[in-house]
Amino acid sequence: MSITASAEGAGRVRRPLGLMPTAVLLLGALYCLLPVAWVLMAASKTRGELFSTNAFAPGTGLLENLSDLSAYRDGIFWQWMANTALYAGVGAVLSTAVSVLAGYALAKFRFFGQNLIFNVLIGGILVPSVVLAVPQYLLLAKAGLADTYWAVLLPSILHPYSIYLARIYAAAAIPDALLEAGRIDGASEGRLLRVVAVPLMGPGMVTIFLFQFVAIWNNFLLPFIMLADDHRFPLTVGLYTLLVTGANQPALYNLVITGALLSIIPLIALFLTMQRYWRTDLSGGSVKS
C-alpha cells in the first residue's frame, strides 16, 4: 500500500511500472522463505503442538527439543555437525588451493600440453557424478580407505569448475607485466606465487572456497555411498537415517525437524556475513569496473 502512496506522491509517471516487478520478486522471496520460516516455528514446538497448532505460530518446546536432540544416542547429532564442518572446511581449503595453483598455471604460463591439460580437466565438469561414485567407492575400498574420513574428503578435492573459475580470475586479476618485472628482479616463481598471485586472486579464492564449502556441506550421494559407520556421517546422511528411523517412530519427528533447522543455520550465517563474495562473476569472469 505504502508503495502506491509514495509513488503517486512522488508524481513520477513511470513509477507504477515498478509495482509489478516488486510484487513478483516479493512473491518469489516469500515462496523461498516459506519452508525456512516453517521449520523455524516447527522446531520450537512440542510433539503435541506440532500437529495441533497453527503452522506459523511459535511453540513452547524449543529448549526441550534441543536437549532431546543433544541426548539422542549420546549426542551423535553434534558428531555429525562436527564431521560436516570437517569435510566442508578441510575439503574446501584443499580444493581452493589445488584450483588456484592449477588456474594460475593455466592462465599465466605458456607450456607444452597446456590446452590438452585444460581440456581434459574441464571435461571433468561434464562427467556425471554417478559414473564416479560407485567405482570411487570400490577403488577406495581396495586401498582400505572406504568408510573412513578420507573416503569423503579425497574425492571432494578436485573440482573442475573451480579450476575453470580460478583460470578466469588469474587471467583477469594478475597483470603479466607485474610477473615479468618480478622475474627480471630475480624473484623466484615460488615467491611470485606468494607475493603477487595469491594476494591478487584473494576475492576469487574466497568465492571458490565458499561455493565448494556449500557443495561439500550439502553433498549426500558421496558420503551415503562411502560411509557405513554413522559416527563418520555428515549431517545430510545423518538426518536421512534419522528420518528413515522416524518413519516408524513419529516420536522422532521433533528431532528431525530440530536437526534440520540446526543443519541450515551455519550456511545461512555464512551467506549473510560473506555476502559480497557471492556476487563475484561466475561465468564470464569479467571483474566489474
Binding site: W217, L235, T236
Partner: peptide
C-alpha cells in the same frame, strides 16, 4: 528479495525434501 531467493541454496537437498 535477492538474499531470500538465494537462501534455499544453503539448504541441502535432503533437508529441502524433508521440509
Amino acid at each position: 528479495s535477492r538474499i531470500a531467493i538465494f537462501l534455499p541454496y544453503a539448504v541441502p537437498g535432503v533437508v529441502a525434501t524433508l521440509l
